[in-house]
Write a protein that binds this DNA or RNA. Sequence first.
DNA 1: TTTTCCATGTAACTCGTTACATGATTTC
DNA 2: GAAATCATGTAACGAGTTACATGGAAAA
Lengths: 180, 180
Amino acid sequence: MYRRLLLLGLLAQGEMHGYRLHEFLERWLAVCSDLKRPTAYFLLDKLAQEGYVSVSIAREGNYPERKVYSITPAGRDYFLTLLRENLATAERVYYPGDVGLAFLHDLPAAERLELLQVRRAGLAAALAQLESVPHREGALGLIIERNVALLRADLAWLDSALARAAAVDSLMGERTTSEP
Amino acid sequence: MYRRLLLLGLLAQGEMHGYRLHEFLERWLAVCSDLKRPTAYFLLDKLAQEGYVSVSIAREGNYPERKVYSITPAGRDYFLTLLRENLATAERVYYPGDVGLAFLHDLPAAERLELLQVRRAGLAAALAQLESVPHREGALGLIIERNVALLRADLAWLDSALARAAAVDSLMGERTTSEP
DNA sequence: TTTTCCATGTAACTCGTTACATGATTTC
DNA sequence: GAAATCATGTAACGAGTTACATGGAAAA
């Protein structure tokens, strides 16, 4: 449902054709969604059928025909409804990574540490990448901030868990392989 | 994919019939998944078709017939593969709540603060509920710990964002409605 | 002239959910 | 006798992805 909100929100800023819309999404909103192109086209047509956006064909210069979507009054209402609902809700998120943790003890101690080190590296890389984005103000800035905060917390937790695991293992005399 | 890991992981601890499995999931693993009953049955049969689990019919006392699933050697291999992959990966999570943030400025300042206060309350409730679980050791404890850490970070971020927003609004002389 | 960019779509598929259907058996 | 529990399923639907298909224009 948040994809509809995303598309309507963009169209609320101004009309656009599908290709531009997706391009914009990829460039600026990759932090909060990875909406695929076919999905965008499909959703836009659906929103059109439902009367939330209207479509007109345009051609500019020698470029291929474009379907320009603009939001209708009904669409604007719908957008605001979705937005209010989204903002007021604390959505429950499931982390697929938690499932692996549930079965940690099915692997030998050394291997679990190794694997979690790999996870840690991935997490650190993702965090570094987000932190490297030059500071933005406004909505985008907020989203990046939030994701940084969550990634940091995740990393901190992983580190503490790894430290404790390593401590237990050394107490038990198990060999642990780890990268610096 | 993490659902297969979940089911195989449980079956790796011992054979079980679908109903018990789902019951167990609901009671103990609600933190990391909300796998629905039909999905569990469907997946179990699929795993059976693929040769990762075997099925036998059993009846005990006067209870209805049960399909008892047990993991096969191939299933055990598959389980370990999925587990290793899961542990070594830092999955990227998209928060639907981020999309709303992207369009914050499409609502009047007072209303955004109000809505985000509602979100905050939901977040705090979820956190309180998780924190109220008596301390568990082992895998479950880790998962709960992690989720608590992430919820706390999310809450802390929201609070700081709200504080800043309120400060800006008061500078601009806008009326802000907020609950204690 | 070959590759990349612009622009749109379709078809087949996977995955998961909701809602519905069944039937016996304890428990109240 | 009614309600809850145990136990399994199916059918229909919706959402989203992948892979495939097209065709002109600009750039290399």
